[in-house]
Design a binder for these strands. Sequence first.
DNA 1: GCCAACGTTGGC
DNA 2: GCCAACGTTGGC
Length: 145
Amino acid sequence: MKSEPDAYGIDDLERDRMEPWDGIRNYQVRNMIRDDMRIGDQAFFYHSSCKEPGVVGIMKIASEAYPDPTQFDPKSRYFDSKSKEDDPRWLLVDVAFERKLRRTISLREIKANGKLADFVLTKRGNRLSIFPVSGKHWKTILDME
DNA sequence: GCCAACGTTGGC
DNA sequence: GCCAACGTTGGC
C-alpha cells in the first residue's frame, strides 16, 4: 500500500497505531480492498514520491471495507460530488501499525533483485496505489531487510 | 520540473 | 462504442 510520506508516512502510523486508509479514488483499488482484503491480512507500507521510494514497514488490515467519509466532505481534497450517502462510491479499510522495517528496502534494490523481476511494483506502468503481493515476493523482500 | 503511462470524461 | 483531451501518479 503506497503513501506519500509527506502526506502520511510510517512514522505517522507508528504514532497513531491505527488509521483509516482514505483517499482511494481508483475503481480497481476499491474493488480489491472490498473483495480481497480480510481483517488480519498483512500489508507492506510503501513510501512513494519521495527521496527514497521503497518499503518501510508492515501493517495489518484492521477492518472490513466501509464508506470513505472524505467523499462526502466538501472541504476534503477527496470530495466526490457524484457520490451519494445511500450509495457510496468509495471505500476504505482501517490499517494498524505492526512494525517498521530495520531499514528501507528501496525501489532501486527491489528492481535490482532478480527474484523480483516479476513483482508488480517493478513492472512498467504500475500505478495502482494498492496491489496484492505473493507469498514468494513477500518473503524475498523481508529477506532483504 | 519533466514525462511516460495510465484512467476518466464527455462529445459524437 | 470510439477516441481526443485532460488529469493523475510517481520515478527520475
